[in-house]
Measured scan of single mutants.
Amino acid sequence: MADQLTEEQIAEFKEAFSLFDKDGDGTITTKELGTVMRSLGQNPTEAELQDMINEVDADGNGTIDFPEFLTMMARKMKDTDSEEEIREAFRVFDKDGNGYISAAELRHVMTNLGEKLTDEEVDEMIREADIDGDGQVNYEEFVQMMTAK
């Protein structure tokens, strides 16, 4: 299944994987998964984290390695993001709930994920998604960005 991913997608997933893999040992533990999910405003229980890991832990060693992570991402993409997942993601970014993602809100979430971005990089990300040019990202623009192939 992971063989249907483009090189660009694999590179993006590698970057995402390293955000989860806090200690850089090449595997994601339940603790690391929990840290990232909490930084995104989720509050999973230990059991939920274990279930999430077990779902993709092909070799049964209790952690997720990069090939397992790729399989999980490929699977998720095949079920292409349901509207509800996209709306949920939008809410994570839209901290003040005004229906727009500002540069400050984007920077806040990315920083929580451990991504240190310059102001230019954040502005560039907003510009790429900002179709109507108002300097922020509304829900429609967010959907376009998330579903762009």
Rank of each mutant, 00 (worst) to 15 (best):
K14C: 01
K76Q: 02
T118S: 11
M73L: 10
K31R: 12
F20R: 15
Q42C: 04
I126S: 13
L70I: 13
L19N: 07
M37V: 13
N54V: 04
V122N: 00
D123M: 07
L117C: 04
T29F: 07
G99P: 00
L19K: 15
L5K: 10
E32Q: 02
D81R: 12
G26W: 10
G26A: 14
L33R: 03
E55Y: 07
R87C: 12
F90S: 02
D59E: 13
E115Y: 15
E121I: 04
R38P: 06
E7H: 03
A16R: 04
I10K: 00
G133A: 10
A16G: 11
D57I: 02
E7A: 06
D81E: 15
I10E: 09
I86E: 04
L40V: 14
L40S: 10
N61P: 05
E128L: 05
M72Y: 08
E115A: 06
K95S: 15
T111F: 06
Q136L: 11
A2R: 00
N54G: 02
F69M: 00
I101S: 03
E48D: 14
D123A: 09
E55I: 05
T71Q: 09
N43K: 10
R127N: 11
D119C: 15
P44K: 06
E84N: 12
E115K: 11
N43V: 08
A103N: 14
R107E: 06
S82N: 14
K14P: 01
F69P: 03
D57M: 07
G60P: 05
G60E: 00
G60N: 14
T111E: 14
T27I: 11
D94F: 02
L19F: 03
E105G: 12
E105D: 12
L113T: 00
A129H: 05
N138Q: 08
H108P: 09
A2L: 09
R87L: 09
S39Y: 15
T6P: 13
G97T: 10
F20V: 15
K116G: 15
V143W: 07
G99S: 14
E85W: 00
I126F: 09
R38F: 02
L113E: 03
D79L: 09
D21G: 12
V143Y: 06
K76R: 12
G97Y: 00
G60I: 07
I101Y: 05
R91H: 07
S18G: 01
E46P: 15
Q144S: 14
F17Q: 15
M52D: 15
S39N: 06
L117M: 00
S39L: 14
D23I: 02
T6N: 00
M37S: 03
K78S: 14
T27H: 03
D119F: 09
I53D: 05
E12R: 02
E88S: 06
Q4L: 10
Q144M: 01
V36C: 07
A104K: 03
E12K: 11
M146C: 07
F142Y: 11
H108F: 14
V36P: 01
G62D: 11
A16P: 03
F20I: 11
Q9M: 00
I10Q: 07
T111Q: 05
E48I: 08
D21L: 11
G135E: 11
A74D: 08
P44T: 13
E140L: 02
R107A: 14
L70R: 14
V56L: 12
I28E: 02
R87W: 15
E88W: 14
G114M: 07
S102R: 11
G133F: 04
A11W: 07
A11H: 01
I86C: 06
I10T: 11
L106N: 06
N61G: 07
E124W: 10
L5A: 04
E8H: 08
S39Q: 15
K76F: 07
A16M: 12
V137R: 06
K14Y: 03
D3S: 03
F66C: 14
E128N: 00
E84R: 11
Y139T: 04
V109N: 01
D57N: 13
L70H: 01
P67N: 02
E85H: 04
P44E: 05
G135C: 12
L117N: 02
E84A: 15
M73Y: 08
G99Y: 10
S18M: 07
E68Q: 04
I10P: 15
Y139S: 04
L106F: 08
F13H: 01
R127F: 05
D59F: 12
N43I: 14
E105S: 02
D134K: 00
K116Y: 04
R127S: 08
E105P: 05
A11I: 06
A2C: 06
E105H: 15
L19E: 07
E46R: 10
M77Q: 15
A16H: 02
S82I: 09
T27Y: 02
G60V: 03
E141Q: 02
M52S: 07
E141G: 12
S102T: 06
E120K: 08
S82T: 04
E8D: 11
G41Y: 00
Q50C: 06
D57R: 15
V109E: 01
I28F: 14
R107F: 03
M73E: 08
V137H: 06
S82R: 12
D65F: 05
E48F: 13
G41K: 04
T71W: 06
L117Y: 04
F142M: 11
L5P: 11
P44Y: 06
M72D: 08
N98S: 10
Q50L: 14
P44Q: 11
N112H: 08
F142C: 02
N112S: 13
E88P: 09
E105R: 05
K31S: 05
H108Y: 13
Y100K: 04
V137S: 06
T45F: 14
E83F: 02
T27F: 03
G97E: 13
V143S: 02
R75W: 07
K78G: 11
F142D: 04
D130M: 04
T29N: 01
I10S: 11
L33Y: 05
D23R: 08
G114P: 05
